[in-house]
Simulated assay, not measured.
Amino acid sequence: MAGQQQETRSLWVFGYGSLCWMPGFQFGGSAVGYIQDYVRRFWQGNTTHRGTPSQPGRVATLVEEEEGCTWGVAYELKGEAALEYLEKREVALGGYNTTVVTFFPRDPSLTPFPVLLFIATPSSRDWAGQAPLHEIATQVIGCSGPSGHNVEYVLRLAEFMREHVPEGYDEHLATLDSLIRQRIKQHNLCLKTLMGDGPSDPTPSPTPAPHLHPPHQQGNAAPFQPPAQERRDTFQYSTKLPPKKLRCLNV
């Protein structure tokens, strides 16, 4: 019973969009894996991070689909500051709702466990809805917001998945990535400028949470190298977090 109680103490969040490569908060353990019965789609509009009210961008959400599978990264939240930060970034600013789903780690020696999930639905603020991918690509090319260009959001996510989760191929994401790159070449746009400076000040490598590695299996799973933190000159860091929380996040 004591072991089971230990397993419920930590709250984890599942990242499938910008949280994969730009978590922006201090976390404990992390693990690559997937959730079932959902697929990633760029159907959520965005007016606070990667777009503006007059020119909304497109960001990822999840859509329920039987036998669907979405790969990403689960992070162990440490302290109230991390959860409050995510609620501001994803709910207050992003228009997402929350639910809880089961996360299946890539390492088969690890037991599936519940994770917090931020998800947008047709009832969410800024919902953009389904559209042909070539139209979504055109919209992404033309949008930018306080956190950077919309192109950066899509391409860095696609790059992260190719590098860290090659088994998690996502046709929707891969096709959108390809269409955006084609448009950049066609219009002679500067990819470096669109991608910005990228995340800075990488978070130290976390120690996997003890309850993910039973004593007789410790050492079987290679620690996941976490993606870099979110840039600190962005809207959500400098203007939306109170000074107390900024200090908690070492900003």
Rank of each mutant, 00 (worst) to 15 (best):
M161Y: 06
E167K: 09
R125H: 11
P146V: 05
E167P: 04
V154G: 03
D126M: 10
C143Q: 11
Y153R: 02
Y153D: 04
A131N: 06
E152Q: 13
A137F: 12
E167I: 02
S144K: 15
V151H: 01
L133V: 07
R156T: 05
G142E: 15
L155V: 04
H149G: 00
I136G: 01
G145M: 09
F160H: 05
Y153F: 12
P166T: 04
V151M: 02
H164W: 01
V140S: 13
E167W: 12
G148Q: 07
A128W: 01
S144M: 09
T138Y: 08
F160S: 02
N150D: 10
Q139T: 15
A137V: 09
A128M: 09
S144I: 13
D126I: 00
A131E: 11
Q130A: 14
G142N: 15
L157C: 09
P132W: 08
Q139K: 14
R162I: 02
V151W: 02
E152G: 09
G145D: 07
A158C: 05
H134A: 09
N150M: 08
G148F: 10
P146E: 02
E152V: 03
P132G: 00
F160Q: 03
M161V: 13
E159A: 09
H134G: 00
Y153L: 05
Y153I: 05
P166R: 10
A137Y: 14
M161P: 01
A131T: 07
H164L: 01
M161A: 06
V154Y: 00
E152W: 08
L133P: 06
A158I: 04
S147E: 13
L155S: 06
A131Q: 15
D126Q: 10
F160G: 01
H134T: 14
L157R: 02
A158F: 03
G129E: 10
G129C: 08
R162F: 02
G148R: 03
E163L: 12
S144G: 11
I136S: 08
H149E: 04
C143K: 04
Q130D: 15
W127C: 03
A131F: 03
V165G: 01
V165I: 15
M161R: 06
E163V: 11
R125E: 10
H149K: 10
G142L: 14
A137M: 13
C143Y: 11
S147K: 03
S144Y: 06
E163N: 01
A131C: 09
E167D: 13
G142T: 14
I136T: 15
Y153Q: 05
A131G: 03
G145L: 10
F160D: 04
P166C: 11
P166I: 08
G145A: 08
E163T: 11
E159C: 04
P166M: 10
N150F: 05
Q130G: 01
G142D: 14
E167A: 12
Q139I: 14
S144Q: 15
S147Q: 11
I141Q: 13
Q130V: 09
E167R: 08
T138C: 10
W127Q: 05
D126F: 12
A158Q: 01
W127E: 06
G129Q: 04
E159G: 05
T138F: 07
A131Y: 05
H164C: 12
L133F: 08
G129W: 08
G129H: 07
A158H: 02
Y153H: 09
V151G: 05
D126H: 13
F160A: 09
P132L: 07
A128S: 15
P146L: 04
H164R: 14
R162C: 01
G148D: 04
R156E: 06
